[in-house]
């Protein structure tokens, strides 16, 4: 037998095979999802509302039962070996659901007990301090702001020292500063080797944090890709060249290089990226010079993950 950490290294920590979920009303939320999640990575699960993100997480965590297919967590089946799998998982739900009348300390300790953990005040203290909740430990949850409640939910999810953390829309309705704070907290978690699965509407968030991106739509995984490769492969760059004097028509020499002229004739656009056209910028500039055109400004625009996401989702519609 291999030691557990070696096994984990060899096989994905979460392995989803042909997972389907059809609700009693006939709605098919997941249509044969296959997905492997690697230990220690941050995977962002992107998709429009109703794509099946939450359904998928619910099945992995045990809130929902699969219609068919299999999910293995740490090599254990989530249905038949739920005790093993749920010990490995921490879940931060989308909704801010808290016991309003409980104190922060009690609710976090309760979560640890519920997962079979013996009392460990030192650990709870560290978690609360890491999430800047230590000062609030004796406060009742109803006295906390939304952002703090969200952090309490994260503290609850971490109280039993899970190896996998699911964050379902962790920064929905959280202000910019708190969102940045949340990102730092998640980054720290990753440093301790925790695998993080994040669903989000803020593509900026995925772009900022994720190692890999999975896009889900209509209950199907459209793609799973390293974020960097995805940006490189699908990302487009544009070079915008502002002209001092507008042009009526595009000179043929520039058209041959693939440049386009904006409607008002004030801007030349050179599109590149996707591994094509990178080397031609010098040529483009030389050709403009040769045409005797003078430029007032130059700017580049790189497509964000959001643009990529929108174009992906639209392309499949």
């Amino acid at each position: 037998m291999f030691p557990p950490n070696l096994c984990a290294f060899m096989s994905p920590i979460v392995s989803i095979r042909n997972l389907t979920k059809t609700y009693a009303n006939g709605f098919s939320a997941l249509k044969g999802v296959d997905l492997d999640i690697r230990e220690g990575e941050i995977l962002a699960l992107l998709g429009p509302n109703g794509a099946g993100k939450t359904t998928m997480i619910s099945i992995i965590c045990g809130l929902s039962t699969p219609s068919s297919g299999q999910v293995l967590v740490g090599g254990h089946d989530v249905v038949s070996e739920f005790r093993e799998t749920r010990r490995l998982i921490g879940l931060v739900p989308q909704e801010l659901t808290t016991d309003q009348f409980e104190t922060v300390w009690n609710t976090v300790s309760f979560s640890r007990g519920l997962h079979g953990g013996k009392k460990n005040p030192a650990l709870i203290e560290r978690i609360l301090k890491d999430l800047s909740l230590w000062d609030k430990r004796d406060n009742k949850l109803r006295e906390l702001s939304g952002g703090m409640k969200r952090r309490v939910l994260i503290a609850k999810a971490l109280a039993h020292e899970p190896r996998i953390l699911f964050l379902d829309e962790p920064t929905a309705g959280v202000d910019v500063e708190l969102r940045r704070g949340m990102w730092t907290a998640i980054d720290r978690l990753r440093a301790t080797g925790v695998t993080v699965i994040l669903t989000t509407h803020y593509i900026e968030e995925a772009e900022e944090m994720a190692d890999r991106i999975a896009v889900i739509r209509g209950g199907e995984i459209l793609l799973v890709e390293e974020k960097r490769e995805l940006m490189q492969k699908l990302g487009r760059k544009q070079l915008h060249l502002e002209l001092k004097t507008p042009l009526g028509t595009l000179p043929p020499a520039l058209a041959a290089l693939g440049l386009t002229l904006s409607e008002d004739g004030r801007q030349l656009v050179h599109e590149y990226g996707n591994g094509a056209g990178e080397g031609r910028i010098g040529q483009v500039l030389a050709a403009i010079e040769a045409e005797g055109l003078s430029l007032s400004d130059v700017s580049t625009h790189q497509s964000s993950l959001e643009d990529i996401f929108v174009s992906l989702v639209e392309a499949r519609q």
């Binding site: 093993e84 799998t85 309003q100």
Partner: peptide
């Protein structure tokens, strides 16, 4: 009550029978 407030998620996702 946990069903009503939604905190039941934690009990259902915990390793408890």
């Amino acid at each position: 009550f946990p069903k009503f407030t939604g905190t039941i998620y934690e009990i259902l996702s915990a390793p408890v029978s």
